[in-house]
Each structure stands twice: as C-alpha cells, then as structure tokens.
Design a protein around this nucleic acid. Structure first.
Length: 295
DNA sequence: GAGGCGTGGGG
DNA sequence: TCCCCAAGCCT
C-alpha cells in the first residue's frame, strides 16, 4: 500500500468536523461495538432523526448481542416499530445469534467476518470496523459518493454505485494514520448529510467549497446515468406489507386471514403481500393464523 | 445486476 | 400536493 500525498480536502474536513459534527450518541467514545452495529443497521436507508429514539430504547433493552439473541425474533420486529424495512430487524436478530455462535458474543473486527453476518454488506462492515474499532478502511455511503462526485470528480451527482470504484475513490482521500482516516470517513459522510445535500446543497456553508471541482466548473448539470426512480409507494405492495406488519406487531396472538381483510380492499394484493412476508420470514402461518416468528 | 423492500421528512 | 430521497442489503 503506497503512502498518500496529504489531501487538502481531508485536512480541511478534519478541522471542520471537530466543530460541526452533530453529537450523535453512537459516536460517543464509550459506546460498545454492538451499539455501533445496531446504529448502522438502523441507519440503512433511514434518517438520523427517526433512528435516535429507537436506538436508545434498543440499546437499553438489549445491551449485548447475547441479550438480543436470547429473545425471539418477534420481539426484535416489535421493537423495530415503524423504522421501516422490518427485514432489518430480523437480520439484526440473526446477526446477534451468529455473533454469539461464531464469535463468543463479541462483535468481530475482521472485515470478512463482519461481511459474513446477516444484513451486513460492504458499507456496514467497513463502518463497524472503522467507527467501532478504529481500523483504517474506506467507508462509502450515499453521502460519501455524492461528496466525492462533486468535490473530486466535478459531477453534480454520483453515478451508479460500484463498490470497488467507490472504495478506491475514498481510499485516495484517506490519511495513512487510522485515527485520522476514521475522522475523514465520518466527516465526509457528515458533510454529505448536512451541507452537500442531494437536493439543495448549501455551498455557502461548505468548508471545502474552494477545493470543489463541481463548483469550480460552474455547477454543470449532471449528464450521466441516474438510478431508476423508485416506484410510487401509495398503493404499492410495500404499503400493504407495512399495514399487515402493523397489525401483527400489535396483536400478541395469531391473526387469521379474515381478520386481515380490512387492512386492504384488494384481496389479491393482500394475499400477495402476505405471501411475500411469509417468504421473507417476517410472518409464520398455521391453522390458527399468522404471527410474528418466535424462533 | 436489476428489482424489491417501509416510512417519513422536506423542498 | 407530490415527488425526491434517505448511514444498503439480499436475491
């Protein structure tokens, strides 16, 4: 691994982060790797403000992987409440079980061991390694990708994700020493989340505006490929799944098909949603009806 | 590799 | 109002 020439962008971000970082509780010095891991699961595709109260409650109730693994998945799904993508609650419970079984109840440091856990992909594995353990890895999320696209590549938006390419781009920005690299990872994400926003970037407040290639080029409009627009939510199977899950979280007993009928008028679509939830393991069904998974 | 997956904040 | 998009991952 070759040494880097110092990046003025990285240096500026380190100074900016010292003042501008939001005091998020999972960034506190005394939080456990497990607490960091839980935050990363919850933050997948979900905003900080919505995660905060769920994370506090979760860590208080289940302060260790073993504590969560000792309870049925149904309790994890209930505690997940309306954070969205409830498969993540199932995956987090599964990951806790795997940590107990494979790693003696301790969150592993190793990237490959992290990647092997349910629900942990390229972003989350590196985020845990970097933020929980201080290891020097590039961490690339959607905010990072946008900041690099603008400040370094001079493009208004990040193109389609490519893990290898994105990691290489961030690697080029990272200082050699792990503590500084960790801060640059966090600061780049923070800048994208709070200043270099997707819709309305606040360039007048940006600490690296002078170094920004996109700004220097006069903010050219983005010409490259965009990610496909997300299907509309209203009336979607996703909405129906959410409504069914809401019923099942509230009911601490089996709920049969007749009782679910009022949830959605289109019976075929309701059946499709239930079938999908069963396939995902979010529901189990028997003669008594549907319920959240107990094991 | 594209598509599917919740829910809600903000422009 | 409506639409974008949000600390991604799995199949």
């Amino acid at each position: 691994m070759s040494r880097h020439t110092p990046s003025p962008i990285a240096d500026t971000l380190i100074g900016w982060f010292a003042d501008a970082a939001r005091p998020l509780p999972w960034r506190a010095a005394d939080v456990s790797p497990w607490a960091v891991l839980v935050s990363e699961f919850m933050l997948q595709q979900t905003q900080v403000a919505r995660v905060l109260p769920r994370w506090e409650a979760w860590i208080e109730r289940w302060p260790t992987p073993a504590a969560l693994a000792a309870e049925p998945p149904s309790e994890a799904v209930r505690a997940w409440d309306r954070l969205g993508y409830p498969r993540r609650a199932l995956w987090l419970h599964r990951a806790a079980t795997e940590i107990v079984e494979r790693h003696g109840g301790e969150v592993p440091h190793d990237l490959d061991a992290l990647l092997a856990l349910q629900g942990i992909g390229p972003y989350t594995a590196r985020a845990i390694a970097a933020f929980a353990f201080g290891l020097r890895h590039p961490v690339v999320d959607t905010n990072t990708r946008r900041v690099l696209a603008r400040a370094v590549a001079g493009q208004g938006e990040a193109g389609p994700p490519s893990t290898a390419r994105d990691l290489a781009a961030m690697e080029a920005l990272l200082p050699d020493d792990p503590p500084s690299a960790r801060i640059v990872n966090a600061a780049t994400m923070e800048l994208g989340a709070t200043v270099c926003a997707a819709r309305a970037p606040r360039c007048d407040e940006c600490p690296i505006a002078d170094a920004c290639a996109w700004r220097r080029a006069g903010y050219p409009p983005y010409e490259g490929a965009r990610r496909p627009v997300q299907a509309r939510f209203a009336g979607s199977d996703r909405q129906v799944r959410g409504l069914v899950m809401r019923e099942l979280r509230a009911a601490h007993r089996p709920v049969d098909r007749v009782e679910l009928a009022p949830v959605w008028a289109d019976a075929a679509q309701l059946d499709r949603a239930i079938a999908g939830l069963l396939a995902d393991g979010l529901l189990v069904g028997d003669d008594a009806g549907y319920r959240l998974p107990e094991r």
